[in-house]
Computed example of a mutant assay.
Amino acid sequence: MTSYPILVVTAVTAEADAVRAHLDPGNVLVEAVGVGPAAAAAGTARLLAGRTCRAVLSLGIAGGFPGRAAVGGLVIGTRSIAADLGAESPDGFLPIEELGFGTSILESDPQLVKALQSSLPDAVSGDVLTLATVTGTAATADRLATRFPDAVAEAMEGYGVAIAAAGVGVPFAELRAISNPIGPRDRAAWRLGDAFAALRAAAPALAALP
């Protein structure tokens, strides 16, 4: 029986390098495609064109919602949500669903989520938000936490990767390592080393995906 690889998509090379050295490229392909949902969607679609993969995984570092995901820990996305896809209104933000133009929510594949949860029992599971603009204020962090009570992290690529995977009918999931709490930007307090260490430690779980 032919075995097709898992495609792991990251935003930047440093994220890809954190796991690539620990994986068999015949089983898990790891590629960086750029920052943001547009680059993620385009890059993932390019990688999937003419190639058969058994699953696609969006992987990288992320900001965590305080009290829901610890800095230095891992989160498994049960859904990828384009949190800023919609329109402003006098009564607040209107998601794209209310405009009648599609959906801002894409479900992760249950089998992939279950496999990741089994291999990474300390990881927190929940929604991962995709934003084109990273949160940098307490007010925005509070607003997002209220709008999305099941959100555990925010990043910039998951929804784009999920769109590309859905377009060719390939199962999708998202795995993130938390480098900082969501809120006011304080680069000096970010624990990038811990987040990258968490990604490296998660590599065996990627190799074991169905």
Rank of each mutant, 00 (worst) to 15 (best):
M1E: 12
T2E: 14
I6N: 07
L7I: 04
L7H: 08
A11K: 00
V12M: 15
T13D: 15
A16T: 04
G26C: 11
G26K: 08
E31T: 14
A32T: 05
G34S: 13
G36D: 06
G36R: 02
P37W: 05
A42S: 12
A42Q: 10
G43R: 05
R46V: 15
R46I: 15
R51F: 09
T52Y: 01
T52A: 12
C53E: 01
C53N: 05
R54D: 09
R54S: 10
L59Y: 02
L59M: 07
G60F: 04
G63M: 10
F65K: 02
R68M: 11
R68G: 10
A69Q: 07
A70I: 12
G73F: 13
I76D: 06
G77C: 13
G77Y: 09
R79N: 08
I81T: 07
I81C: 04
A82Q: 08
A87N: 13
A87D: 14
E97T: 10
E97H: 04
E98S: 13
E98P: 03
G100Y: 04
G102I: 11
S104L: 02
S108E: 01
D109R: 02
D109P: 05
Q111P: 02
Q111N: 13
A115M: 04
S118P: 01
S118A: 15
S119V: 01
L120E: 02
L120Y: 03
D122I: 06
D122E: 13
A123D: 03
G126R: 00
L129R: 01
L129S: 05
T130C: 11
T135M: 01
T137G: 01
A138Y: 03
D142G: 15
L144N: 05
L144A: 04
R147I: 06
V152I: 06
A155S: 15
M156F: 02
V161W: 12
V161M: 13
A162F: 10
A165M: 08
G167M: 10
G167I: 07
A173M: 11
I178E: 01
P181V: 02
G183Q: 04
G183S: 11
P184F: 08
A188Q: 14
A188N: 13
A189D: 05
W190E: 03
R191Q: 15
A198H: 00
A203I: 09
A205M: 12
L206Y: 06
L209V: 03
